[in-house]
């Protein structure tokens, strides 16, 4: 399927999802759906660096929060509409991602992962000590009363996130099947060998971290309007970091479908568990599933399906 055809198909699916959501006739569908879609964007973004390139980013929550706080800054200064703010948020975190990319010059593997964790905490501390965006107290955002073409603001946010999810998955598939994606896979398998074979590793890694950072910031951009109250502990929540790692790992990390499947399954499961049991328990489920999958099914659901179909073919 060509990229354009894929985009058209994904958009058609998105429209179908939107129409299906409107028929439910309950605001909560948008509320819960938004979270799942947000995780699709986050997990896909993480996978571009983690799954394709093999660099573990523990700082997803940091990128997400910086995206959200960029919206807060824009809201308090320029007061641009959300749709204009989203690319700007992405730009901020893309620059952050580029900076993180330069870390890979000196830090490989484990040290890179720890450095990303460090970066998230440093950013957290900066935001806590910055009174303009509310500091540790947090900040309130007032939603516009209504938007054109949509039945309420929550529906609008849902549609925005749906569009972002389509774009994120499309970009991931584009990267995966391009020269860029093959270069990244070469880095993942053996960085030294890739360098020797003439792969411009630094350039590709920088593209990968920048792109991943951009998408994470985009995922966080509508967050202030979604919760209407942003505080550092909510925006830098460890749950974002855990989920954006768990979802691709559970789905499967080598293809665009993995994070998508992982995010839909795990995101829905968490929503259901939060409503029926408790939110702490739903997080526990994610942790347990993550540990089970990495120990028992290292290639995720996609890997399991592939192994099953292969076994069937061979009788």
């Amino acid at each position: 399927m060509s990229p354009t055809a894929f985009l058209a198909a994904a958009a058609a699916v998105a429209v179908a999802v939107f129409v299906a959501a409107t028929t439910v006739g309950n605001e909560y569908v948008y509320f819960a759906g938004y979270t799942v879609l947000q995780y699709i964007v986050l997990a896909t973004a993480w996978n571009i660096l983690g799954g394709y390139t093999g660099y573990v980013n523990f700082g997803s929550a940091g990128f997400f929060a910086i995206g959200a706080y960029t919206t807060v800054v824009i809201y308090k200064t320029l007061q641009l509409p959300l749709l204009v703010a989203i690319p700007l948020c992405g730009l901020t975190t893309a620059i952050l991602g580029l900076g993180m990319g330069y870390l890979t010059l000196r830090l490989r593997g484990v040290f890179f992962a720890i450095a990303t964790l460090a970066m998230a905490i440093v950013l957290h501390t900066l935001i806590v000590n910055w009174p303009f965006v509310g500091g540790a107290r947090g900040v309130y955002i007032i939603r516009p009363r209504d938007v054109a073409f949509f039945d309420g603001y929550m529906q609008f946010l849902f549609a925005v996130m749906l569009a972002l999810a389509v774009i994120a998955v499309w970009i991931a598939r584009l990267v995966e099947r391009s020269r860029l994606g093959r270069g990244l896979a070469a880095i993942r398998d053996d960085e030294l060998a890739a360098e020797c074979a003439g792969v411009p590793t630094l350039k590709l890694k920088l593209i990968s971290t920048t792109l991943s950072g951009f998408l994470m910031g985009v995922a966080g951009a509508p967050f202030p309007y979604y919760v209407t109250y942003v505080d550092p502990n909510g925006a830098f929540n460890l749950a974002y970091a855990v989920n954006s790692i768990a979802m691709p790992l559970i789905g499967g990390m080598t293809s665009w479908a993995g994070p998508l499947i992982g995010a839909i399954l795990l995101g829905t499961l968490q929503q259901v568990a939060t409503v029926t049991i408790s939110s702490a328990l739903s997080l526990l489920i994610v942790g347990v599933l993550l540990v089970l999958f990495v120990t028992l099914a290292p290639n995720g659901l996609v890997g399991l399906f592939a192994a099953l179909s292969q076994r069937r073919r061979h009788g």
Binding site: F58, V242, G287, V288
Partner: peptide, 16 residues
């Protein structure tokens, strides 16, 4: 990569 995720998961399970 996976062992990092393993310990990350353990940390999360203990905490929750």
């Amino acid at each position: 990569l996976r062992s990092l995720a393993f310990f990350f998961g353990l940390m999360f399970i203990t905490e929750v």
